[in-house]
């Protein structure tokens, strides 16, 4: 049963990933990405990571993919790429490089026995059937509390940065009208 779930979901992961890079239409790529993300969530469930699987569905499969689809439709780039746009030499080089990377990682996986290292240095996973939200939260708010706070700082910076990026280019587009407003100071004064 475990093997069946793994091979079905693993095949879905790889098919989705290949669909992302093969699809000419960005909308199709986003939907294949959704297939990959949901299949990975199932693999998380199989590895006693129920909360991570739920967050994967909520954050990745919902928020991030919807954000991608939103931008694709907002920009109106869902028409597909011109097929003569490809550089054949670059594509061959990329595939060769990919094979080299894959070989390197597989040699590392095969040659090392990492899984026999120290066990449960930060706490065990907890009972498999009841989930491990409590253990995870305890570790997150004790061992990793500094990283957690830095995550909050990172999110604030990202939000401010994206707002600044989105506003600045829009401001430049209608800069004359903004200056025209600035020359009429009496219009907005409360007096």
């Amino acid at each position: 049963m475990e093997a069946v779930v793994f091979f079905v979901c693993g095949a879905a992961v790889i098919i989705g990933a290949l669909g992302v890079i093969a699809g000419r239409n960005p909308v199709h790529s986003a939907l294949f990405l959704l297939l990959t993300l949901v299949s990975i969530a199932v693999l998380y469930l199989q590895q006693h990571a129920a909360l991570v699987a739920a967050v994967q569905i909520v954050v990745y499969a919902s928020a991030i993919v919807v954000l991608f689809l939103f931008v694709i439709t907002l920009l109106g780039v869902d028409k597909g790429e011109a097929p003569d746009d490809a550089h054949p030499v670059q594509q061959v080089a990329a595939v060769v490089l990919g094979v080299l990377v894959l070989t390197g990682i597989l040699v590392l996986v095969h040659g090392n026995r990492w899984v026999t290292g120290a066990h449960s240095t930060r706490g065990a996973l907890g009972a498999a059937d009841s989930g491990n939200v409590e253990t995870l939260a305890k570790s997150l708010f004790t061992d990793f509390v500094w990283a957690f706070e830095m995550t909050a700082v990172l999110l604030v910076i990202a939000v401010v940065g994206s707002v600044v990026l989105a506003r600045r280019s829009g401001h430049r587009a209608d800069a004359p009208s903004a200056e025209a407003h600035a020359t009429e100071p009496g219009e907005r004064s409360p007096a």
């Binding site: 990571a49 909360l51 991570v52 967050v55 994967q56 954050v59 990745y60 928020a63 991030i64 954000l67 991608f68 931008v71 899984v115 290292g117 120290a118 066990h119 449960s120 240095t121 930060r122 706490g123 065990a124 996973l125 907890g126 491990n132 253990t135 995870l136 570790s139 997150l140 061992d143 990793f144 990283a147 995550t151 990172l154 999110l155 910076i157 990202a158 939000v159 940065g161 994206s162 707002v163 990026l165 989105a166």
Partner: peptide
């Protein structure tokens, strides 16, 4: 390894990915 920290780090990766997508799409 029966160790919870691997799952905790996934959350940080996820937050970085979300921030990266927000800034990158902007």
């Amino acid at each position: 390894l029966n160790d919870i920290s691997g799952q905790v780090i996934v959350f940080f990766t996820l937050v970085v990915a979300a921030a990266e997508v927000a800034v990158g799409l902007a």
